[in-house]
Amino acid sequence: MPGFIDGMMPIQLLAELLLIIAIFILGAMILDKKMGIHIPMLLQAVFVFIAGWWYYKYRIDPPLPFSVRAIYQVMISVGIFMWVSSAEKGWIEFKRPIIAVLDAKTPLTWWVRAVLLVVLPLSASGMTYINLAPSLSEPIELRTVHPAPPAAVKVHGKKFPLQTSESPFRIDENGEYSDHVQDAHVMDNPFDPDGIDYMQNVKEGGEIFFQNCHFCHGDNLNGRGLYAFAFNPIPANFTDPGTLAQLQETFVFWRVAKGGPGLPREGFPWASAMPPWEQHLTTEEIWKVILFEYWHTKYPPRTWGEE
C-alpha cells in the first residue's frame, strides 16, 4: 500500500476515508439491488466500526496515540448510531438481531445469549482488572515539551532577555537584523565564497552542527542521529513543524545554552539528555548553529505577531 505523500497528507487522509466509505456504500448497494444479497444493518455497522479502527490503527504511520484513536473511535460510534437510527426502518432492522438474541426464541439465539451472558461480564471484569492492575509500563507523562522560558538567560556572563534579544547573525546585506534574510537566501549555496555574511555564518553554523549536534539530532536534522535511539524520548526532530518552527530563536538559544539541566519546573520530568552547550561553545557559535538549523529546515523563527 502506498504511503502518505509528503505535503498532501491531511487531504489524502480525508480523501482515503471518502473512498473507503464510497466503496462501502456502493458495494452494499450493488449487492442489495443487483445481486439481491442484503447485508444486515448490524453487520454493516460492525464492519464500519472495525474498518475505522483498522484504518486509524494500521494505515496511519507513524502510529497514533491511543488517546487520539479513542476520540476517533467514539466519534465513529456516534456516527454509526446516527446513521443506523436516522430512519425507523433501518433502526428496526439494526435492532432485530439484538432483540432476537435477547429474546432467545430459537436454540441458536439461546446459545448466543448464554455465551454472551458468560463472556460479557467476564470481559468487563477482565478489562477492569487490566485497567486497575498496577502496571510496569511507564506512566503517561503530560510532559511540557516547550516549557515556559525564563525572562532572561545569562550565558558567558552576559544577560540575554529572551523577549528582546536577537541573533547577531540574522543580518541582511546592509548588516541590519532582518526576519526575511533567511527566506531570501534559503536556496543559496553555503559554500559559495562570494555569499553574503549571512550565508557564511550559516556555513560556519553547519560546521559546528556536524561537529557537535548531528550525532543525536541526525544529519537530516530529523532527530534520528547515530545515538538517537539510545535516548527516550528521542532527540528533537527539527524538521517537525512542532519544534523549531513554533519557537522564537531566543527560546532555542536558551535551550541550547542551558540544555536538559536548565529546564524549569514546568518541564518536569526533565527527560532530556541535552548537554548545556554553553560549556562547550561560545555565544557566537551557539547563535550560528541555530542560524544553520533554521536555514536548513527552511522554517522561519517564530515572532510574536498575532496568533
Binding site: 523577549q163 536577537e166 515572532t303
Partner: peptide, 14 residues
C-alpha cells in the same frame, strides 16, 4: 507592560 508593548527591534507592536 509586556501585555501590550513589544521590545524587540523587528517586532511590530499590535
Amino acid at each position: 507592560c509586556s501585555l501590550c508593548h513589544v521590545f524587540g527591534s523587528s517586532e511590530h507592536g499590535e
